[in-house]
Amino acid sequence: QEVVLKGVAAFQEGSIYAQKFEQYIKAVNEKGKGQIRIQYLGGAPKVMPLFDVGKNLKDGVIDIVTTSSAYYGNVLPEAEAMKLIEVPMSELRSNGGLAFLNKLHVEKANTEFLARFYNYERAHIFLNKEIAKPDFSGLKIRVTPMYRPMVEKLGGTGINSTPPEVYTMLERNTVDGYGWATRGIFDYSWQKVTKFRVDPGFYHPDITLLANHDTWTKKLNDAQRKLLLDLAMEIEASTADVALIEAERKKQEEAGIKAIRFAPADEQRYVKEAREAGWAVVNKISPENGPKLRGYFTKE
């Protein structure tokens, strides 16, 4: 008979980063009619606190979620490394990296890694002051934990604040900039108070599809698992985002946000410093698995 899975997004319903999950649910419920259905309960924090999504998935309170590794470090510390995946997902699936990553997910978080939904996002620093070199000395930059190590490594001051306060802080120059993904600044109207975007982007912010391991292995049969995986792979393999991100960069340009480009050597150093800052944190969290993951995730 029909199996019903409880689904939750770590992002607000209808927002950019919940959309693919919502589209996925629609596809599953159409194709799986009669055998499987995902009951979409909504997004965080409407149905549960953001940082509890991972734990609730682990405990089986919910069955299937879309979230980012930034939000479930409490159940899987190594998730910290996932923004540092630089090889394409297809390669990660063939080089044994995904198998290793999934093993960590199963053992520590009782979670099955199904697919990565967003593959082309980059992390950026947005600024109100022009800089010529990858040097943030004297700049106050609003950060999340993901951005702090790299901002500080490049000499800047990382400032914490909650997203609702960021607009006012930018408007009144309490901060000189902020770290954010390629897309999403229009959701907060930050384009009105932003002058520059530092290119290139660094890290690959990940948004993934995860399922509870018990649900996956015990509640579902082979056909149901295949259906869920196949539909997820379709989304993972899609390159439609590339055009959308290009359009977003255009839109930012039209809103008056200029791209800052460094000289090629500086550019390389910028990305490298960010990468090293990221891995330093991972290696501190897991001295054992950090280097292994780096072997799978990068081509160095």
Binding site: N74, E80, R148, N160
Partner: peptide, 14 residues
């Protein structure tokens, strides 16, 4: 038991 750690700027055991 699960060594859960909250991480923002500090690592705090949950």
């Amino acid at each position: 038991r699960n060594n859960m750690v909250a991480y923002k700027t500090w690592y705090v055991p949950e």
